[in-house]
Write a protein that binds this DNA or RNA. Structure first.
Length: 599
RNA sequence: GGGGGCGUGGCCUAGGGGUUAAGGGCGCCGGCCUGUCACGCCGGAGAUCGCGGGUUCAAAUCCCGUCGCUCCCGCCA
């Protein structure tokens, strides 16, 4: 590099356009662009400079013959220097146009070049689409975010957030901020704790969601509330899970379930229209939780593929095959999946599928291939040609398809086959691209059984109202009570989750009692909410959308880290700042905290 | 808490007990080049193969441990 080089001041120079703006219509205009040196092509007396900012690239031309001073400076440029270019827009000749660039019809003939700042050689290259190790990307996130893909993701996130605010505003919602320092509550994920200085030994928690506050806002008469709310959960991470994440949190008064579903359908419609220019159906498909589990083996079915779980217990009953017989006698089921076009799967391929089945938690897997020259199966001697054909017909398996069968107790069989369904779809590349399949899953159970702690727990959360027609069973058969809860599923991802809430103290105490909270404990933990219910709480309900997931799905990214500016790594560490960090003992003293040595 | 994968110049990677093997691409440095757009051509610098230990006559390579990154299960109302 030029050791004697000093950056020049911006001074009076102001940019007139961004690097993605200029088109043929601008030909002849004098413009000033500012940005980063994306790439440089030095041909000798002629030098091309791709100038980049967050929204695009513009080719600038420096000609030694016409602008010797600017040219001389341009020869010292290196990747990611920050420069200002003043020059004239010129239409490119037909042979030199670049059809891959929105600005490819023009170029800027630079008359003046100002180097605003230099850059050291880069630890990761901004201009190359290389698979850089993620830890390095995170450490140098400011460079990573300059990459066009990341700039695009940030822009998309902004547009989706804006569309959300615009739509909810149009529907009469107030955006209200709720506290970040809140009280720890039982149930749910592990809380992040913040020690109190003024009350040593006491702690705030960071909110897992603004649930209680938004319900209180309904009691306050806010009527319709939303927030792009940051939420915190101290649990282990995944590709689609961060310790802090963002929800579109919303709540409405004087509504029933249909009102919330309709509102969210409208919201998604607007957001997809504004963000992606995509038209969504006015109404989303619906499915009961029971059907989702029985037919798709998941409470968040991916409907981009229509492979389904079929119960063939009735068809194989009495066929004499020991594994199936034994299962059916124990009250278990035999279910099947049709894998399209895989009738010819080799023995090796079948073994690979069996391995997937074992990984999914099944003891084994049986095959029935409907080949062009007849049925192929190790079960043929039990089933017989006729029965095998009957099964295929019942499942809609065509010639060329492969039927896989497995036996097991209902819920474990469903879950395992649900996983296999997705494994198969991935293996045979059955997922269509650019398809968005929304689905409402309804009629969730209010409670599920926690066998570790030997008690009921809330399937959704303990403020969810039971369906009125099931409320009578709260004391007698709580596991049969369905909740007024709804999940919005998009391509197999739980995108949003919500419910109509309880708004009466008596009902709330009853529901809490079932999960093992006494009236005293309930009062201690949620007393303010229970009290609020006694001062005129309106019926209300709402939901929360996983905003990071929404953006990731729209961006076609599989990890939400790609749509969060500064995410944490798998160990919840911010690789750029180093957080969490050790603090001075003085800081601990003020909080009256002491770190215990391990073990 | 458990399991899997990965770690080789600044970046992406090849190699997988020895015979001149640390090779390639990008980037970096120097030179040439007036229509390139992943410009091209010529030359150059840069790595004790994450760290520690072990096996061996010999370890980037095999083994154990450890650290880091990553994915999955548990967990995430």
């Amino acid at each position: 590099m030029n050791p004697e080089f000093r950056p020049e001041p911006l001074a009076e120079l102001r940019r007139t356009h961004r690097c993605g703006d200029l088109r043929r219509e601008n030909s002849g205009d004098e413009v000033v662009l500012m940005g980063w040196v994306h790439r440089r092509r030095d041909l000798g007396g002629l030098l091309f400079l791709d100038l980049r900012d967050r929204q695009g690239l513009t080719q600038c031309v420096l000609n030694q013959a016409t602008s010797p001073e600017a040219f001389a400076k341009a020869e010292t440029l290196r990747n990611e220097f920050v420069v200002a270019v003043r020059g004239r827009v010129a239409e490119r000749s037909a042979e030199t146009r670049n059809p891959n660039l929105p600005t490819g019809d023009i170029e800027v003939h630079a008359e003046d070049l100002r180097i605003l700042n230099t850059a050291r050689p880069l630890p990761l290259q901004v201009a190359e689409e290389q698979n850089v190790e993620e830890g390095l990307r995170m450490q140098y996130r400011y460079l990573d975010l300059r990459r066009p893909v990341m700039a695009r993701n940030l822009a998309l996130r902004h547009r989706l957030a804006k569309a959300t605010r615009d739509y909810l505003d149009s529907q009469g919602f107030y955006e209200v901020e709720t506290p970040i320092l809140v009280a720890s509550t039982p149930e749910g994920a592990r809380d992040y704790l913040v020690p109190s200085r003024t009350r040593p030994g006491h702690f705030y928690a960071l909110p897992q969601s603004p649930q209680l506050y938004k319900q209180i806002l309904m009691v306050s008469g806010v009527d319709r509330y939303f927030q792009l709310a940051r939420c915190f959960r101290d649990e282990d991470l995944r590709a689609d899970r961060q310790p802090e994440f963002t929800q579109i949190d919303l709540e409405m008064s004087f509504v029933g379930m249909e009102d919330v579903l309709a509102l969210v359908e409208g919201l998604m419609g607007h957001v997809f229209q504004e963000g992606l220019g995509l038209e969504l159906p006015d109404r989303f498909r619906r499915m009961s939780h029971a059907e989702a589990m029985d037919s798709y083996g998941s409470d968040k079915p991916d409907l981009r593929i229509d492979m389904r779980l079929h119960d063939v217990s009735g068809l194989v009953e009495g066929c004499g095959f020991g594994v199936f017989q034994a299962a059916l006698e124990e009250g278990a089921r035999v279910k099947a999946l049709v894998v399209p076009g895989q009738a010819g799967a080799s023995r090796k391929e079948q073994d690979a599928l069996k391995e997937l089945a074992v990984a999914a938690g099944l003891p084994g897997l049986f095959f029935l291939a409907r080949a062009a020259d007849g049925m192929k199966s190790s079960l043929m001697k039990f089933l017989g040609e006729e029965k095998a054909l009957e099964i295929c017909q019942a499942l809609g398996a065509e010639v060329g398809d492969l039927v896989v069968l497995a036996a097991g107790p209902r819920t474990t069989l469903n879950t395992a086959l649900g996983r296999l369904r997705l494994d198969f779809a991935r293996r045979y590349d059955l997922f269509p691209q650019d398809r968005f399949e929304f689905l409402w899953v309804l009629d969730f159970p209010l409670y599920s059984w926690n066998s570790d702690e030997n008690r009921l727990e809330a399937e959704h959360h303990p403020f969810t109202s039971p369906l009125p027609e099931d409320a009578g069973m709260l004391e007698t058969e709580p596991l049969k009570v369905r909740a007024a809860a709804y999940d919005l599923v998009l391509n197999g991802n739980e995108l949003a989750s919500g419910s109509i809430r309880i708004h009466q103290r008596e009902m709330q105490e009853k529901v809490l009692a079932n999960i093992g909270l006494s009236v005293e404990q309930a009062r201690e933990k949620f007393g303010f909410l229970l009290d609020a219910f006694e001062y005129g709480a309106p019926p209300h309900g709402g939901l929360a959308v996983g905003f990071d997931r929404l953006v990731a799905l729209c961006a076609g990214e599989t990890s939400i880290r790609e749509v969060i500016a500064f995410p944490k790594n798998a160990n919840a560490v911010d690789m750029m700042s180093g957080a969490p960090v050790v603090v001075d003992s003085e800081q601990l003293d003020v909080l009256r905290l002491k770190i215990q040595p391990r073990d």
